[in-house]
Amino acid sequence: MMDQSPQMPPAQMPLALKLGMILTVLMAVMALISIVWTPYAVDQLNIQARLQPPFQAAHWLGTDHFGRDLLSMVMMGAQVSIAVAMVAVGIGMAVGVPLGLTAAALQGTRFDDVIMRGNDLAFAFPALVIAILITAILGPSAFNAIIAIGIFNIPVFARVARGGALTQWQLDYILAARVAGKSKTRISIEHILPNISTVLIVQGSIQFSLGILAEAGLSYVGLGAQPPIPSWGRMLAESQTMISFAPHLAIIPGVAIIITVLGLNLMGDGLRDWLDPKLTHRSRQNHRHMTERGEG
């Protein structure tokens, strides 16, 4: 008989996972170090040393038009980006997963209908639109960016959790648990949640990378973190007028974003292949569908 063992992932990690982890760890370490130390203070102006090109001993990545050290700003930017995206994923999971699990447990009832309809509708509000609404009321801030991206994540996780849970509910072991007299709540927590955790982790890494992109977009248009907190998006916005004579100001934060997002995406794809080789192409596609929903 064919033996499938969902418990033990294969010993060999996929290349994508390794590569993704290296890139992600690199950015995470940079963000962590920036909490206690950066080469220069990010608000330290030095007009003499302004617009230095990259790759020099004093300023590895050069300086901007106020003479601020670009490496320090990129490091602080990583901290802000990662923090915003991480909290936003946390909000999405904390609200979305219980909603999805409940909807699946009550499949076919009015509650499930309302949740699903609400979900469909929520997809009509991209993170950018939510951010516009919130900012119009509360004014721009990193906090509002977190809320906007977080709200946007809720329906994504609700849908993924519900989809995964529905598949589990079809399986006989759930029926066996019901015959054993367990309540639906208990089954959802004890049996279903652990068995959809792989999908949730993978979706989490994808939403994380989308959060990074969204945060960059929001701060680029001025709806994210406000000065003096550095952010990759605003660094790009400020570089725009100087792009013809100081292109490194535009290129470096962009590369930082790309490395982070690429690392998280590779890690997500790799994790999925590694943890769950049984996942069919169709379900892979579904992850990708979700991927697509986050940008902007």
Binding site: Y220, L236, A250, I257, T291
Partner: peptide, 21 residues
């Protein structure tokens, strides 16, 4: 994989740099 990771507004700036400037 790379295309997904590139923020569109940043790519726009690079296009400006190359094709316009």
């Amino acid at each position: 994989q790379l295309g997904i990771a590139i923020p569109n507004f940043w790519f726009a700036m690079i296009l400006v740099l190359v094709f316009a400037i």
